[in-house]
């Protein structure tokens, strides 16, 4: 069993048993119960809800993120263990959705944490979520779901964006711009 065979097995195994922790901000949380219960039953793919990021593999962001919740989401994301994946639910995570012009929600999730999969729709229906899970499992098997590697590679950019989002006083924004110039 050479190294990449091990990789293949570990990808297969992590595909077949995805443990998710979902950060139920906004209206996406309502879609999760039907996915878990008898109608759509995500458990048949080995996906089980977990209470803590330590035990989880996939983080579901199910709605708009205000700056305050972003701070918690980053903390939860960093507490998860590699290999970890993120799925963004709904248009609010893609481009801010209906809160596109609001001052305190973030517009593009992938600027702050690497997102492997987005699900379009102003709250996607359970079928879309099931389809997303299957899509994610495929990506894991093919090795395309490499969000956590990107986070390590571009760690300081992500941190810069996060500081930019968290800082609301003008002078703080000014020094971040000067750091970029350097």
């Amino acid at each position: 069993m050479r190294n990449d065979d091990w990789k293949k097995v570990s990808r297969l195994v992590s595909k077949k048993s995805l443990w998710m922790v979902h950060f139920c901000t906004g209206c996406g949380a309502m879609e999760m119960p039907p996915v878990m219960t008898s109608r759509y039953d995500m458990e048949r793919f080995g996906i089980a809800p977990m209470a803590t990021p330590r035990q989880a593999d996939v983080l579901l962001i199910t709605g708009y993120l205000s700056i305050k919740t972003l701070k918690r989401v980053v903390q939860v994301y960093e507490q998860m263990r590699d290999p970890k994946y993120v799925i963004g639910f709904g248009s609010c995570t893609i481009n801010g959705g209906m809160y596109w012009d609001s001052y305190n929600t973030i517009k593009d999730l992938s600027k702050y944490i690497p997102v492997d999969l987005y699900i379009a729709g102003c709250m996607p229906r359970p079928e879309a979520i099931m389809d997303a899970f299957l899509k994610l499992m495929e990506m894991i098997e093919k090795g395309e779901a490499i969000g956590w590697k990107k986070y390590h590679k571009y760690y300081d950019q992500y941190k810069r964006n996060q500081r930019m989002a968290f800082s609301y006083r003008l002078d703080e924004v000014q020094d971040i711009k000067e750091d970029d110039a350097k």
């Binding site: 918690r72 989401v73 939860v76 507490q79």
Partner: peptide, 9 residues
């Protein structure tokens, strides 16, 4: 400090 407390920093 790095303990899971519902994401509190």
């Amino acid at each position: 400090e790095d303990n899971y407390l519902a994401g509190e920093p």
